[in-house]
Design a protein around this nucleic acid. Sequence first.
DNA 1: ATTAATTACATGAAAATACATCTATATGAA
DNA 2: TTCATATAGATGTATTTTCATGTAATTAAT
Lengths: 152, 152
Amino acid sequence: MSKSPNTLAMKEIESETTAVWVALNLAYRSVHREMEKALKEAGLPSLRWYDVLWELERSRDGMRPFELENGLLFEQSNLSRMLRRIVDEGLIEAFAYEGDGRGKVLRITAKGRRLRKRMWQIYGPQIESHFGKIVDANKAGKLVSILKPLIF
Amino acid sequence: MSKSPNTLAMKEIESETTAVWVALNLAYRSVHREMEKALKEAGLPSLRWYDVLWELERSRDGMRPFELENGLLFEQSNLSRMLRRIVDEGLIEAFAYEGDGRGKVLRITAKGRRLRKRMWQIYGPQIESHFGKIVDANKAGKLVSILKPLIF
DNA sequence: ATTAATTACATGAAAATACATCTATATGAA
DNA sequence: TTCATATAGATGTATTTTCATGTAATTAAT
């Protein structure tokens, strides 16, 4: 009998440790998919674009690509092209960074703010509908405190 | 002042509900990336291939593509091409399904079993290293029970 | 100051993915 | 049987992502 568990959809959990990973995996995929679907059905961009827009909206002075990369856990090359697309849509703008000729600063535009707001009208309720129960059951703090150490 | 939280990398949590989603998001991405990296560095295929191989290894009679699709939360078209690649590598085989001329049955090959085992030698320890502490802290059951309702 | 190493970002090419659509089989109703 | 609809899976096309590099600016060492 093999001791190896699968990642997903496992019926017989082979170890508690693996059970956590399987559950995390399925939960993330499941929720993520539904959120992307909801946004797409509303004719809006993906969650990744939202993350970038919101990150820039919160930072009054703008941010540099490598900061987004670190904060949002994007691949550098992926982010690079993604930013170009977002810039092409006029949602953010890139300016030269004074002090380091290699860098640039990204700032959200008025159009970008408007779009982010529209996205939030879909996205916010999605978060509520998926995680509302957990919060009601007062489990949120616990779950967050368990998940946090996994990051990085 | 906007009430909208971002998805990731949020410093000031705006609501418990969103905090859960942010933590889940970052935790999943972080862990998933490291696991994929470990497999790649060992010259092995991705986690998705592992999931398919293990799912087929566990089912003695083989499985049909749509069953994998449901269990592993893959896109149908994505799975279709992925299966062709795995078949091309000789890791699984496809047979006609008696009883429905449209369907086919997938079975793992000996080569597939060997590869899955090799992958587990990397993958298993990765799961342990990421989730071991959590389990040691005896929170595993709790975490799983909280995550489960999020699935589907 | 020269050289070497590092950092920030970009890009070509290959691979993966999504979406819509297509074929073939199956099922059910009239 | 015939027609409508549903289901299993494959594929064309467009887009996105990854991988390995490339370029340019900065920093550190000599």
